[in-house]
Design a binder for these strands. Structure first.
Lengths: 231, 231
DNA sequence: CGGTAGGTTGATCGCCTTCAAATCGTGTGG
DNA sequence: CCACACGATTTGAAGGCGATCAACCTACCG
C-alpha cells in the first residue's frame, strides 16, 4: 500500500471515474518529490528510469538539436503525465524537463509501467487518448509554423498559455509561471529580438503588459484577433 | 473467416511473429479495395467510418488550415496503417488521404477496432509503438522547420523519401511515385518557386535529376551533406 | 551595490515570398 | 496523328519580414 493518499490525485480529470481501489493501485509504487525552480527532472537522451505526473507547479520541456540549438516543446500543467517513454516503446527521454517553478511531482519506476497498465486497463485507454491529443497538438504546431507570421505564432502561444496556465487577476489574465522572451522565442521559432519587438509593440497598444519573465494579457479579444489570419 | 489470404500481409514487418491464426483474426472483417491515382480515400473532418492498411502503392496525406492553405503531412508506404482514428479516440479524420499512385488497401469498419485490439493484444502493442514513432517524427519535423534553411529542409525530405519510398536505378535513387514541386513545397513549408529554384540549382550541380513530377537523386552523399548543418 | 541575466532598440542584410511572364510536357479530342 | 489546352516548371525582378550584429538599459540577486 502506498503512503500517498488517493485524494491527492482523485480530482484530476485523468482519474475521473476511478474507484478508490484503482487510485490506490495507481499510487502503489509511486514516490512524491519536490523540485525547486530551475531543477532538471530528466535530461534528453538519458536512460529513462521513471515516468512522472505533475501534482503542482509547471514543467518546461525542451529539445536540443544535433547542432546545439534549443527549442521549446511545451509546458506541463498539473494533472498531466510526462516522460512516459514506456508508452511509446523508447528507453531514453526524448527531451529535457525542467521545473519552471517550484513543483511537486509523482514518479514511478519505468518497470512499473506495464504491470500498472495491465492492472488498470482504464488508465491504458486514457494514455492512448493523451498520446493522440499530443500528436494532434504537434500537428497544429506544424501548421502554425508553416503558415503563420511571427506575430500570429506568438499570439497563439500566448493564448494557449493563458488558457491552460493562466490566472485571472482583475481585468487581466496572467501567466502563472516565469517565462522569458527567450522561452517564447524557442517555442515559436523566432529570435528573442523579434519576440521582444512584438511584445513591446503590443504593450504600446495595451494588449499585453509584461515585465521581467512575466506576461499578462490585458486585451484578450485583441490578441485573439491577432492570432487569426488577417492582413 | 476472411476471404483474404493471410500470406498477403504476413511478410510486412508489423505482422512479424504473428501466427497464421492471429493473421486470420486480423483479416476477419477486412475488405480489400483498389484506389486509382488521384482518388480520395478519406477527407479531413469527415466522420471516420473505417481504418486502413496499405498493401501496395502510395498514399499522400494532407491537411488544410482554417484559412484554406494546404500542407503536406506525409506519404504512406506499403505496410503501414493509416486513418486509425479509433486508436487516439477521435471520430473524424484529422487529414485527407489521396492515392499518390494506383494503390491497393485493406479496410476495416471503425467499429472493428476495439474488438480486434482485444482479440490480438500483440497488435495493440504495435499500434502504440507506431503512434510513438509518429509523434517523434512529427517533433523532428518541427525541429527542422524552426532551425533549418529551406534548402536543408528540402534535402531532408528528399532523403527521407528516397529512403522510404526510393528505388535504385543504376547509380540513381528515384522516388517511386509522382511528386510535384508543389507537393514538396507543402511538406517543407516553402513556396513552389523556392523549391523549383533549389532543385534547378541542384540539377546544375548534378545532385538530382528531375522532371515533371519525377525526382531522382544522383548524388546521395552531396545531398546528405546539404541536409547537415553547414554554412 | 556591483554583477549578471534579461530586455530593449537601432541598423543592416539576406533569404524567401510575391508578382509576373514565359516555356515545357502530356494527354486528349478532333 | 496533330494541334491545342492546361498543368507543371522555370526564371526574373522587387520587396519585406525577420535574422543578425551591436549597443545599451534595467531589474533582481547575492
Amino acid at each position: 500500500m502506498s503512503n500517498i493518499n488517493h485524494t491527492l490525485i482523485a480530482d484530476f480529470p485523468v482519474f475521473e471515474s476511478f474507484s478508490t481501489q484503482e487510485l490506490n493501485l495507481v499510487l502503489n509504487n509511486a514516490k512524491s518529490l519536490r523540485y525547486p525552480i530551475g531543477e532538471i527532472i530528466f535530461e534528453q537522451s538519458a536512460p529513462a528510469h521513471s515516468y512522472f505526473f505533475l501534482l503542482h507547479g509547471h514543467i518546461r520541456v525542451t529539445k536540443i538539436t544535433p547542432e546545439g540549438k534549443q527549442i521549446g516543446v511545451r509546458y506541463i500543467n498539473p494533472g498531466e503525465f510526462f516522460g512516459i517513454t514506456e508508452a511509446i516503446g523508447i528507453d531514453r527521454y526524448p527531451a529535457t524537463a525542467t521545473a519552471a517553478i517550484d513543483s511537486i511531482i509523482l514518479c514511478w519506476p519505468s518497470s512499473n509501467w506495464h504491470p500498472l497498465m495491465k492492472d488498470v486497463p482504464k488508465l491504458a485507454d486514457k494514455m492512448l487518448k493523451i498520446l493522440g491529443r499530443k500528436l494532434q497538438q504537434t500537428h497544429t504546431r506544424i501548421i502554425e509554423l508553416t503558415t503563420q507570421s511571427s506575430e500570429q505564432r506568438i499570439a497563439n502561444v500566448l493564448l494557449d498559455l493563458s488558457q491552460n496556465s493562466g490566472r485571472q487577476v482583475g481585468e487581466n489574465t496572467e501567466i502563472t509561471f516565469p517565462i522569458s522572451r527567450q522561452d517564447i522565442a524557442e517555442m515559436t521559432g523566432n529570435t528573442l529580438h523579434t519576440v521582444s519587438r512584438i511584445l513591446s509593440n503590443w504593450e504600446s497598444r495595451s494588449i499585453v503588459k509584461s515585465g521581467r519573465k512575466r506576461i499578462s494579457i490585458t486585451n484578450l479579444e485583441a490578441l485573439k484577433a491577432l492570432a487569426q489570419k488577417n492582413t
